[in-house]
């Protein structure tokens, strides 16, 4: 055990494992918190985009136009800019612009439009015949969404959550810029600014492991809920 510690130390002289541990926890809580709120806000937004979209059940040209424009604006702002622009709003919501709490609002605002579009696309993949059959049973729009659309689109929605989670992992790295913390922040501050490649290596490997876990867990869920 002692030999292993010494070996690790000689190979990775600048790595402070306690700090790596805290940074990992920070990344995980940023990811968990932002993913939760992204899904809570993005799912209804995606459903609304779908329903009001062209040739859909609730076609509303004006509302769809406004929602679509809002989503496109948020998606075209580079995340780094969004982080800075959002600072006053973040302080208003969480009381701080620093740390995990300070990072979550910009992460959610950055990822929600992206996720909503993916949900919209997943819903469009549902066979129109299924919507028609459910309508013919006398279902209300709410019943169609809850009982037919969402269950049928579930594999697509899980795929969307997976892609969004991985996008959020790379966003969390940028939140270091506003003092967000986490593994990505460690990579930038120690690995890049202090030129400690060993720290960079460890953080990147850990991020890679995280992305791998997210992707394979996501794939498993998609397969589990695909009955086709």
């Amino acid at each position: 055990m002692d030999a292993l510690t010494r070996l690790l130390h000689s190979l990775l002289p600048n790595v402070d494992w306690a700090e790596i541990g805290y940074a990992s926890l920070d990344t995980l809580s940023m990811l968990g918190g932002s993913l939760l709120f992204t899904v809570i806000l993005g799912l209804p937004l995606g459903v609304l985009l779908f329903l009001t979209g062209p040739r859909q059940m609730f076609e509303q040209k004006a509302l769809y136009g406004v929602l679509s424009l809002l989503v496109n604006i948020l998606r075209s702002v580079p995340f780094v800019i969004l982080l800075i622009v959002m600072i006053p709003f973040t302080v208003l919501v969480t009381g701080t612009s620093l740390g995990v709490a300070g990072a979550i609002p910009p992460l959610v605002v950055g990822a929600t439009p992206f996720f909503a579009r993916l949900v919209e696309t997943a819903l469009r993949e549902v066979d129109r015949g299924i919507i028609e059959a459910t309508q013919a049973m006398g279902a209300s729009t709410r019943q169609i969404v809850v009982n037919a659309l969402l269950p049928e689109a579930l594999p697509g929605i899980f795929a969307a959550v997976t892609v969004t989670a991985i996008t959020l992992v790379s966003y969390t790295a940028m939140s270091g810029l506003i003092g967000g913390g986490g593994l990505g922040d460690l990579a930038v501050r120690y690995g890049y600014q202090r030129y400690q490649p060993d720290v960079m290596l460890v953080t990147v490997v850990l991020l890679l492991v995280l992305v791998q876990i997210l992707q394979s867990a996501g794939d498993k869920l998609v397969v589990h809920f695909s009955r086709k």
């Binding site: 015949g129 028609e132 059959a133 013919a136 049973m137 006398g138 279902a139 009955r227």
Partner: peptide
Amino acid sequence: DAAGLRRFRQRVGMIFQHFNLLSSK
């Protein structure tokens, strides 16, 4: 009206060329 139409549709069954069953159920 919308509510009346929903109640009416519950009294009319329909089947389709491509069956339109929910694959998730």
